[in-house]
Design a protein around this nucleic acid. Structure first.
Lengths: 214, 214
DNA sequence: GAACACCTACTGACCACTTAGTAACTATGT
DNA sequence: ACATAGTTACTAAGTGGTCAGTAGGTGTTC
């Protein structure tokens, strides 16, 4: 019946439309951050942007698809403040992570969106699950590579320790965000992140000598 | 009108009722873990335990109250495997934390409940918010005390570093749980937790000498 | 004139919680 | 030992609300 070719967009999107879609993504980020994905409604997203929920669905098709686009959108804003498009390697990556934590301390909304959605994603059949699985996998690899780059090439640590350290670096950042969101005046996001990353870094780089405290 | 005294329970609860309530708590833990609090329904909890949702409400009054009792219930299971009722201080606490992580690697259900609910709790007006805020606050204090106990009393670190380290220890445990739940065969919960805690511990204890890697 | 950007109105599903009832159990007075 | 009054542990059947998604329309832009 219908031809199998991907229908080429008849008109390319107008500027006003692109702008409108971004407004919706922004509103959805706020809503999903404030209420979670399941508990946040399309009606609330629509209200924030001044239209009806049917209008939102017109642009994104379904709530699930909107979520995935929100995740991609948030990701972009993370590297926005970098001159180069990609995060650096080696020690520079860890400086970048600490700097990101400090920047995040000034934008609780975005932090909350990410923290809430990443944990919600581990629930059964969550539409963001695959996205987060892939994201963590990529990030762990990036951190692992940077760790190895920092180490003395003649005395590399146990690869399992490198992997464990990479996971820990990401974990401490995410975990601190949750504590910080619950007690912003008690938890110092930047300082804690810096201390923990430096500690893990030292432990892996210093390698075999120092150890066995526990 | 009604007398101000607390009405003394006319009958003390029967054994069968206590058992039933515990069955419901167990079922609710599974449901809230699998679906989240907002997305998990009382009907599902009820079905797991073989009754109607009105029956569940009879025992716990409301969904919010059920959540709070679930949180308390989960807490109890955390110290169950300790002979003494309370976690130890000093180095023993950190050994306990690592041991808990290893035990948790064998019970993903409980881990998921906690991970999902703690992150969901940062959303606006979440009924578990106060509970988690208080819980993190207590835990941070416990870890801080243990850290100070481990340090040389003549050369105590900056209190702010102690606080940052305490938050980081808890953070890394929570963050690792989320990554582990998404990729159980890639992330080694026990090993990563041990490495990270040891690293943070060393960094704080070693104190002023070693430093400035970043 | 064709695709687009909406809106209004609706559908069917699900939700927490209420009400009103029934049957079983328990404490108590005799 | 037994009746009985009060309480508990439910169920069935609602109530009113919210939700994502659909259908069909209208004006607007290319």
């Amino acid at each position: 019946m219908a031809p199998d070719v991907v229908r080429p967009r008849a008109h390319r999107p107008r500027a006003a439309t692109v702008e409108r879609r971004e407004k919706i993504l922004q509103a959805a980020m706020e809503t999903f951050g404030a209420r979670g994905y399941h508990n946040g409604s399309l009606a609330e997203v629509a209200e924030r942007v001044g239209m009806t929920q049917a209008g939102v669905l017109h642009h994104f098709g379904s709530k699930d698809l909107l979520l995935l686009e929100v995740l991609e959108y948030r990701d972009r804003s993370d590297v926005e403040h970098l001159e180069g498009r990609r995060p650096p390697g080696g020690l520079g990556l860890f400086r970048h992570l600490v700097k990101t934590a400090r920047i995040n301390a000034g934008r609780p909304g975005i932090v909350q969106t990410y923290a809430v959605l990443s944990a919600e994603a581990v629930t059964d059949d969550h539409p963001g699950q695959d996205w987060f699985r892939a994201r963590f996998s990529t990030l762990r690899q990036t951190v692992s590579d940077a760790l190895i780059e920092v180490c003395d090439a003649d005395d590399l640590p146990d690869p399992a320790d490198v992997d464990a350290a990479a996971a820990s670096v990401l974990a401490v950042m995410d975990g601190l965000q949750i504590q910080w969101l619950l007690a912003r005046d008690v938890v110092d996001l930047g300082r804690s992140t810096a201390l923990a990353i430096e500690a893990i870094l030292s432990a892996v780089v210093a390698g075999r000598e120092r150890r066995r405290l526990l």
